[in-house]
Design a protein around this nucleic acid. Sequence first.
DNA 1: TAGATTGTTAATCGATTAACAATC
DNA 2: TAGATTGTTAATCGATTAACAATC
Lengths: 214, 214
Amino acid sequence: MKKYSISKQALQRLPSYLNYLNWAKRENVKNISSPTIASDLKLNEVQVRKDLAAISSTGGKPRLGYNVDTLISDIKVFLGYDETDKAVLIGAGQLGRALLSYNGYEDYGLEIVAAFDVDNAVVGKKFKGKPIYHIDMLDRVCKKNNIHIGIITVSAENAQEACDKLVECGILAIWNFAPCHLVVPDNILVQHENTAASLAFLSMHLREKMKNEK
Amino acid sequence: MKKYSISKQALQRLPSYLNYLNWAKRENVKNISSPTIASDLKLNEVQVRKDLAAISSTGGKPRLGYNVDTLISDIKVFLGYDETDKAVLIGAGQLGRALLSYNGYEDYGLEIVAAFDVDNAVVGKKFKGKPIYHIDMLDRVCKKNNIHIGIITVSAENAQEACDKLVECGILAIWNFAPCHLVVPDNILVQHENTAASLAFLSMHLREKMKNEK
DNA sequence: TAGATTGTTAATCGATTAACAATC
DNA sequence: TAGATTGTTAATCGATTAACAATC
């Protein structure tokens, strides 16, 4: 079994393999073949094999396919879900609180340590066990916990300011949920959570489909 | 100016161009060149020109670049943000309420008409002006409003059931926020909002970066 | 054994980038 | 005019798919 270096696109497919394999596990599937995975996820079976070859520790067995449990654990290790990264979150509004309350992120190797806001109605409180501090405390908390990931869930108008503060505090990677462009130094990594892009896909395809059906 | 058919990848870049151009507009930029856009968004300038050529109604002007306002409106038209699609949402929990309260989606051509849940604590109430109905009302509301898009914000355990109900009610496209695989008939479009994928990207790059800096 | 499935090399396809003439 | 920038063709690069031998 030769190790391929993984492509950007393959990397993006790994989380869907993981969801799918967890589902298969719940359905009591012990071994699974690439044609099965491919047909369920609407992918090409060779692509599935190549993707899995890049991350699988053991490879598959002819006739049997891949062991579901091993594959799940291989993907988790590859994506680093077994090592937890700590993060802070700025903006304890609806979306911020939704992220705080979703404890599933720990399965993905992310632990939100604390939230920050300026609103006195929430500052000082806890939400789902996570403390909400005043934004002035950001630097102290980040340094103390050696935090490198920041999550922005403030409005588009306030996102740049939040971003600047995170950069000042030594944050290296930013996960931005605000629908806006951010200006950052070159060495800072920004991942835009662009739900509008998914939406664009969905509504374009839907429109095309409805046009074809006429 | 020749019209290119747009690639999948270019389509996914359009929303970030839009965010960026809205930012430029706020900064009072009237015209903008492809090298500027490329450098700010960390893209190749030829790629930017090709992407814009696919959607621009007027094209750019040598020496001047592209008109920001025209480009913004061209992208919106192309992505269908000027025509509103109606949607229903299942699951009025934290995430569901976050989506309901974000009125920005109307800028993206999506109107959430109503939410559905089974929890008597929320059924019958309104949230940000949007009614929350019991799930049993789903069919009636969808048919009456001719709705084709469904948003799933229930837990992974309940997502398949929610999905089945949406399909029964004639929904054609599903935007799934639950981190799980869904089984649907072939003619139904599913867009997984895979935040774990973004996260994977972020944490891998971060780890690589920190390794390199050692 | 026969047949399903894996893993890999080679061929194809599509997207990105380089080069450059056209234009304001 | 000179120079920045556009738009497009051609070249490159990377990702997907086809073909097929190896294997259980």
